[in-house]
Design a protein around this nucleic acid. Structure first.
Lengths: 350, 350
DNA sequence: TTGTAAGCGTTATCAG
DNA sequence: CTGATAACGCTTACAA
């Protein structure tokens, strides 16, 4: 019963007495084939559990109907949601997803090579390093469709994302408007960090002193890393009354840190996160955050990638589509109260 | 400059004056080709930015070196971690991953068909419905390698996972040992839910009354859903002093629910979760949980799938590999104190 | 309405 | 050491 290898058009042809080409047409519902033949062929295909070989197809069609998805090796649930949304959107359009991860630039290069060898028609990517994009530019110049899922513009490359500069700015401005004067930040200190630039810009705009030391890089994207980063930050600045966190994951960690250090949120410490993860909404103290509309992003990214993939010949000029993430105010941010004194009392432990 | 379509072996052959065959061998480093020829061919390939066409290759080799990964449409960060770990393990072995999601049985069928048409050599899957596995069995009978990532045994199919029955049993036993006599549970009420069976079994084993009404199904896998489920549970059982949650995500939601209802954790309510998500470790009250060793699981799953994929002819009999998840005791579980009274006081709001 | 032949890019077999 | 030639499974002219 168990056939050695998968059934092919030829098998169906042999079984029904038609030619492979008739079978091919019939299975694709061509009206050039008689009703009777189509039915017979369909039945045979069914009986053999025939599945068309997409590799053979894409070889002749020069199109794989597959896109590559390259995701960072970070443990952010947002990524999962985005990946899912992208996959579903693509499936609607008849595209499949080949997926790989890029923890390092080298791994990113290898993964891209792998995806290209798999003949993907295009690439959706969270690049590891936003300041190292030349390899992607080169590909695009050779008319390979790429859409980056990042919240900032990049010369010569398409991107879709929540405007991170604006988000950082809005979050910080919210805290300043509440009356906070000493605001720390937990964010990646890579070059071109737009959230950081928004944070700094809000300080300047509102006449607040800004210092490099207000920012700590948790290095890892994890809740635990946020705790360690907060220890550092508190050691440097005893007068902090608020923190802007580049991710709700960090924000939740800060909640725990505050708890361990006897600080109440928001009375003693205000927190604003980023991404609007569900976990922040239902944290013991719900987290004020900048929303990241996953469906919207997925739609936009897939739409753009679709445009690029359907272009033949030269690709149109690159375009960035940045959405403004809504600030969602919840319990974790409020006016600073006896904040200064409280902070002074607390001695970071752990 | 921009070549219309991708360079092929023939292009390199034309450029170097060798035959495509020689080029093919040279690129794969065959010693049958002279050093000089190899160097020249390598250089030309480099210059043309040649990437081998895997589809053509797999057509002749009858092997795609790609595996399908079918993930449930649930927002559990555990899935992300597992997916990543699997992808990396597979990459080490030279396999790529084609990924799809299965929200419903129908979607699962479509996805499997898609993956088969993409010629995947095997399948890693979180099936949507653990009691509907016949379609997978049929495939395996036709010698298609499948490994399920689930924590229970299934006749005729390979699976790898944390033993969910044991985990449910251990978690519940822990609570009983602490002195809890009325324990609720938040878990999916599908047939064959092994965690539920472990929960029930622990009750019987320790002579505690068990009732269906102690379990509420949050339906969605989300923190918010846990809040609603807790409202139901508390309405039914005013004397609850502990809850077993099928996921740390739920556990974190219960933390919030307790906060909203004026209950302290663990003084008034103990919680045990599942999966050992980082978010539970660093929740304001850290969550007691059953560990899920992602790397271990990925290793085992990939190893087993590898065995199956390397078998030709008939597949060996199916085998389940279930690991025991360690119970990690943290702050969220303790002896019940003034628990009964506190619970009686609380009136669920929202 | 159906069959024949060529070709997609690669590897394998067999000569030279 | 290198080059023809066939084959993988499919689609698309072009014929019949």
């Amino acid at each position: 019963m168990a056939r050695k290898s998968k059934p092919t058009l030829a098998d169906i042809a042999a079984r029904t007495g038609y030619g492979t080409n008739t079978v091919s047409l019939a299975l694709r519902g061509s009206t050039r084939i008689s009703q009777g033949a189509r039915d017979a062929i369909r039945a045979a295909a069914e009986a053999l559990d025939y599945v068309p070989n997409n590799h053979a197809k894409s070889l002749v069609l020069q199109k794989s109907h597959t896109v590559g998805m390259l995701l960072q090796e970070i443990t952010n649930p947002l990524l999962t949601s985005v990946a899912r949304a992208l996959q579903r959107k693509l499936a609607e359009r008849g595209y499949s997803v080949m997926f790989a991860t890029n923890a390092t630039p080298e791994e990113e290069d290898r993964a891209i090579e792998m995806l290209r060898s798999r003949m993907v028609d295009g690439l959706l990517i969270y690049p590891v390093d936003h300041s190292r994009l030349d390899h992607l530019r080169r590909l695009r110049e050779r008319n390979f469709p790429i859409v980056m899922m990042i919240g900032s513009e990049a010369e010569g490359l398409d991107s879709v994302g929540i405007d991170e500069f604006q988000g950082g700015f809005d979050a910080t401005t919210h805290l300043i408007a509440l009356g906070h004067r000493r605001i720390g930040a937990l964010l990646l200190k890579e070059k071109n960090n737009e959230k950081l630039m928004g944070f700094r810009s809000a300080h300047q705009m509102h006449g607040l002193d800004y210092s490099e030391t207000l920012c700590v890089d948790p290095i890892e994207h994890s809740t635990g890393a946020a705790l360690r980063a907060m220890d550092q930050l508190a050691a440097r600045h005893g007068d902090l009354t608020a923190v802007f966190a580049a991710s709700d994951f960090y924000a939740v960690g800060i909640l725990r840190w505050a708890h361990l250090n006897g600080l109440r949120v928001p009375e003693d410490l205000s927190i604003v996160g980023f991404d609007n993860l569900e976990i922040g909404q239902f944290a013991v103290t719900s987290i004020t955050t900048v929303d990241n509309d996953v469906l919207l992003l997925a739609d936009a990214a897939v739409a753009r990638l679709g445009e690029l993939m359907e272009t033949d010949g030269h690709l149109p000029p690159a375009r960035s589509k940045l959405f403004r993430g809504d600030l969602i105010v919840r319990e974790s941010s409020a006016r600073p109260a006896a904040a200064l004194q409280a902070m002074a009392r607390a001695r970071p432990r752990r």
